[in-house]
Amino acid sequence: MVNFDAYDIGNHRMSCPACGRGPRDKTLGVTIEADGAGVAHCFRCAFTESYRPERGAHLTTPSKPRIKAAPPTAKHDTLSNYGRELWKDCKPLSGVALDYLAARRCRIPPADGDLRYNVSLKHPTGYVGPALVALVTDAVTSEPLSLHRTWIRADGRKADVDPPRLLLGGHRKQGGVIRLWPDEAVTVGLGIAEGIESALSLAWAYVPVWACIDAGNLKALPRLPGIESLTIGADNDPAGIDAAHTCAQRWAADGCEVFMTKQAENDLNDVLKEAA
Rank of each mutant, 00 (worst) to 15 (best):
F4G: 12
R13M: 09
S15P: 05
C16G: 13
A18C: 03
C19V: 11
R21A: 15
R21M: 06
G22V: 05
R24D: 08
D25Y: 10
K26P: 01
L28E: 08
G29M: 07
G29K: 04
T31L: 14
A34N: 07
G36I: 03
A40S: 12
H41F: 15
C42R: 07
T48D: 13
T48E: 13
E49Y: 04
A57I: 12
A57F: 05
L59G: 06
S63D: 09
K64F: 08
R66A: 15
K68I: 07
P71H: 04
P71Q: 10
P71G: 09
P71C: 11
A74C: 03
A74H: 07
K75V: 13
H76N: 12
T78P: 00
N81I: 10
Y82P: 02
R84W: 09
R84V: 06
R84L: 14
E85P: 00
D89E: 10
D89R: 08
C90I: 00
P92F: 01
L93W: 04
G95L: 00
A97V: 03
L98I: 15
Y100F: 15
A102C: 13
R104I: 09
R104C: 10
R105H: 15
A111D: 15
R116G: 05
R116P: 14
N118K: 00
S120A: 13
H123P: 12
T125G: 06
G126D: 14
Y127N: 03
L132H: 12
L132M: 12
A134M: 13
T137F: 01
T137A: 08
T137N: 05
T141F: 02
S142H: 11
E143D: 09
P144Q: 14
H148Q: 03
H148D: 06
H148V: 01
T150F: 04
I152Q: 12
I152K: 04
R157N: 14
R157I: 05
K158L: 02
K158R: 02
D160W: 04
D162V: 05
G170H: 03
G170Q: 02
G170W: 11
H171L: 11
G175K: 10
G175T: 01
G176K: 12
I178F: 01
R179E: 10
L180Y: 07
V186D: 01
V188W: 10
V188P: 00
G191N: 05
I192R: 00
I192G: 01
E194Q: 10
E194K: 04
S198F: 03
L200F: 05
A205M: 06
Y206I: 05
Y206R: 09
Y206H: 15
P208S: 11
C212G: 00
D214F: 00
D214M: 09
A215H: 03
G216F: 00
K219I: 00
P225N: 10
G226H: 11
I227S: 11
S229P: 00
L230T: 07
L230W: 06
T231S: 13
G233P: 11
A234L: 03
D235P: 09
D235N: 13
D235M: 04
D237I: 08
D237R: 04
A244W: 09
C247R: 00
A248Y: 07
W251K: 01
C256I: 13
C256Q: 08
V258T: 03
M260E: 06
T261I: 02
K262E: 02
N266S: 09
N266Q: 12
L272N: 06
L272S: 00
E274T: 09
E274L: 09
